[in-house]
Amino acid sequence: MGKAFTPRAIDRWRPWIASVVDELVEQLAHEDQPVDLIAHFVRAMPVAVFGRLMGLDGLDRERLAFWSDHAFATTAFPSQQVEEAMLDFFVFGTGLVAQRRAEPGEDLVSSLVQAADEDGELSEEQIVLLTILLVIAGHEVTTTVLSNTMVYLLTEGRDTWNALGKDEGLAPATIDQLLRGISISDRDVLPGFMRRAVEDVEIGGVLIPAGSMVAADTVTANLDPEVYPEDWRTQPFTSPDTPHLAFGAGPHYCLGAWLARMEMELALHRLPKRLPDLRLAVPVEEIDWRRGLLTRSPNTLPVTW
């Protein structure tokens, strides 16, 4: 499964992903203003890209958003509603796995099912859970990252926005800094990624016994002045000397990191190139934020140009 997300494999998809981005940008340019950037571009792009890669072109965007919101919910919905939504999502995943096992294709779900069946170490439930996790991660996380990035670029990051529109070569380094500096989590409910210590370890003079649950705060780590002496906003076109932790690390490193980077590189060059005067149509204080989820991003982002 991991081979499907290697840089070499994903690089073959770049022309097609670029065409998806261009089409969505052009459609956005012809919408009546103001227009919701989230609905018409930010959410539409990862749904189109990942939907095609997983062979889910016909999946209802609203249904997918509904599942994703409930999967990341903390206080946004009643617990019974979350359970019902997740059961519905699991039933969908069960049917999808069964269908791809019976009629395999060239998509990622078919590759996952085939690899899992050959390996024989995953239960059917685990295969289904991994499949629906990929569906959520490929859609929700990319949407959230790009949403929050757009808020920054259309406000205090305006100079970076203008430069990205003029030079696509700036995108890779800039994205590293944006990923490092812009949080996607709701820090009130998600202080960090939950990890279990597999052995005794001492960090900063504190002993963490084996078996302890730890909230690994990658947001703070990405801003540690001893590791990153320069503010991420002051050198937006230079990659940090030390790799950031936005995609995790080690065995927890995000499988789709290369795909997410490519989507952001293309979007954050082609959108400002086509619509350099894109701007918020509401004061930043009036942005309607999604609340009660593990992640935090705008519900809507009205823009004009």
Rank of each mutant, 00 (worst) to 15 (best):
2 G>E: 03
3 K>Y: 09
7 P>I: 06
16 W>E: 12
17 I>P: 02
18 A>E: 15
20 V>A: 02
20 V>F: 00
22 D>Q: 07
23 E>P: 00
24 L>W: 01
24 L>T: 00
25 V>H: 06
27 Q>V: 02
28 L>A: 02
33 Q>M: 08
36 D>T: 00
36 D>A: 00
37 L>H: 04
37 L>F: 10
38 I>L: 07
40 H>K: 06
41 F>S: 00
44 A>L: 05
51 G>I: 06
51 G>Y: 06
51 G>E: 07
52 R>E: 15
52 R>A: 14
52 R>C: 06
57 D>G: 12
68 S>D: 13
69 D>K: 14
70 H>E: 11
71 A>D: 13
75 T>C: 04
79 S>M: 13
80 Q>T: 14
81 Q>I: 12
85 A>H: 12
86 M>A: 09
87 L>M: 08
89 F>D: 07
93 G>E: 10
95 G>N: 11
95 G>Q: 10
95 G>L: 11
96 L>A: 06
97 V>L: 05
103 E>N: 13
103 E>P: 01
105 G>T: 07
106 E>Q: 15
111 S>H: 14
120 G>H: 12
122 L>F: 08
124 E>M: 12
125 E>G: 10
125 E>K: 13
126 Q>V: 02
127 I>C: 09
127 I>D: 03
128 V>D: 09
130 L>V: 12
133 L>D: 15
134 L>M: 15
134 L>H: 09
137 A>W: 04
138 G>R: 08
144 T>Q: 05
145 V>D: 03
147 S>N: 11
148 N>L: 01
153 L>R: 03
155 T>R: 10
163 A>R: 15
166 K>H: 14
168 E>F: 11
173 A>D: 15
177 Q>P: 02
178 L>P: 06
179 L>P: 00
181 G>K: 01
181 G>T: 00
187 R>S: 14
190 L>H: 14
190 L>D: 11
194 M>K: 11
196 R>P: 05
196 R>L: 13
197 A>V: 11
198 V>Q: 12
198 V>K: 12
201 V>Q: 12
202 E>K: 05
202 E>N: 02
207 L>H: 14
207 L>V: 13
209 P>M: 09
212 S>Y: 05
215 A>V: 08
217 D>S: 09
217 D>P: 09
224 D>Y: 11
225 P>H: 07
227 V>L: 14
228 Y>I: 08
229 P>D: 08
232 W>L: 05
234 T>H: 09
234 T>A: 14
235 Q>P: 03
240 P>K: 10
241 D>F: 08
241 D>G: 15
242 T>W: 11
243 P>W: 08
245 L>F: 14
245 L>K: 07
246 A>I: 01
247 F>Y: 06
248 G>Y: 02
251 P>D: 03
252 H>Y: 07
262 M>S: 01
264 M>S: 08
267 A>L: 05
273 K>M: 04
280 L>R: 01
280 L>M: 05
283 P>H: 09
289 W>P: 03
292 G>N: 11
294 L>A: 11
297 S>W: 05
298 P>N: 03
300 T>Q: 15
301 L>W: 02
303 V>R: 01
